[in-house]
Computed example of a mutant assay.
Amino acid sequence: MAHVELLGRLRSDRVLRLPRPPRRRGTTSRPPRHGLEFALTKAATWPEPAHTTSTMTSRYGLASAQAWDRLHPRLTHRGVVAGATAPMQVPRRGAVMRADCGA
């Protein structure tokens, strides 16, 4: 059986990072450490969802869900990491799911 962790909510101002893009052939510079930002408050930063589904419900009308995977948190100087002296673990990757019900 697969190990599953479920997170119920995220702060609306949370910023996550997408996976870094594949390295381009012929480049000699250092590859990027992270991909683009995924800001929960800015829908323009969201790429196409990896999975999308919708269904009609008798109680709420159209219910739809979108999911993005392989996102990881953006580490900042303000978090718990600021005073860390021990080696840090690599941030865990996870999925973000957005559910929406019609009025």
Rank of each mutant, 00 (worst) to 15 (best):
residue 1 M to N: 14
residue 2 A to C: 11
residue 3 H to E: 14
residue 3 H to F: 12
residue 5 E to A: 12
residue 5 E to K: 07
residue 6 L to T: 07
residue 6 L to M: 08
residue 7 L to A: 08
residue 7 L to F: 14
residue 7 L to C: 09
residue 7 L to V: 14
residue 8 G to Y: 11
residue 10 L to M: 13
residue 11 R to T: 06
residue 12 S to D: 15
residue 13 D to V: 05
residue 16 L to Y: 07
residue 18 L to E: 05
residue 19 P to Y: 02
residue 20 R to H: 02
residue 20 R to A: 15
residue 20 R to V: 07
residue 21 P to L: 09
residue 22 P to A: 04
residue 22 P to R: 07
residue 23 R to F: 03
residue 23 R to Q: 05
residue 25 R to H: 09
residue 25 R to Y: 11
residue 26 G to D: 08
residue 26 G to S: 03
residue 27 T to C: 10
residue 27 T to M: 12
residue 30 R to L: 11
residue 31 P to T: 03
residue 32 P to C: 06
residue 32 P to R: 04
residue 33 R to P: 00
residue 33 R to L: 04
residue 34 H to T: 06
residue 34 H to Q: 12
residue 35 G to W: 02
residue 38 F to G: 00
residue 40 L to G: 04
residue 42 K to L: 05
residue 43 A to M: 04
residue 43 A to D: 04
residue 43 A to Q: 10
residue 45 T to K: 01
residue 46 W to E: 00
residue 46 W to L: 02
residue 48 E to W: 00
residue 48 E to R: 00
residue 51 H to Q: 09
residue 51 H to C: 09
residue 53 T to Q: 08
residue 53 T to K: 02
residue 54 S to K: 11
residue 54 S to N: 07
residue 55 T to Q: 15
residue 57 T to A: 06
residue 57 T to S: 15
residue 58 S to P: 05
residue 58 S to D: 13
residue 59 R to E: 10
residue 59 R to L: 13
residue 62 L to F: 09
residue 62 L to D: 14
residue 62 L to G: 08
residue 63 A to N: 12
residue 63 A to E: 10
residue 63 A to H: 14
residue 67 A to R: 07
residue 68 W to P: 01
residue 69 D to Y: 01
residue 69 D to S: 05
residue 69 D to E: 10
residue 70 R to P: 00
residue 70 R to C: 12
residue 71 L to T: 00
residue 71 L to Y: 02
residue 72 H to V: 00
residue 72 H to L: 09
residue 72 H to F: 11
residue 74 R to Y: 02
residue 74 R to N: 09
residue 74 R to M: 08
residue 75 L to R: 15
residue 75 L to E: 05
residue 75 L to N: 01
residue 76 T to A: 09
residue 77 H to F: 06
residue 79 G to L: 03
residue 81 V to F: 15
residue 81 V to P: 05
residue 81 V to H: 15
residue 81 V to Q: 14
residue 83 G to R: 12
residue 83 G to T: 07
residue 86 A to E: 15
residue 87 P to C: 11
residue 87 P to D: 13
residue 88 M to G: 13
residue 89 Q to F: 12
residue 89 Q to K: 14
residue 91 P to H: 07
residue 95 A to T: 07
residue 97 M to Q: 05
residue 98 R to P: 04
residue 99 A to E: 14
residue 100 D to F: 01
residue 101 C to A: 15
residue 101 C to Y: 12
residue 102 G to R: 04
residue 102 G to K: 00
residue 103 A to D: 09
residue 103 A to L: 12
residue 103 A to K: 04
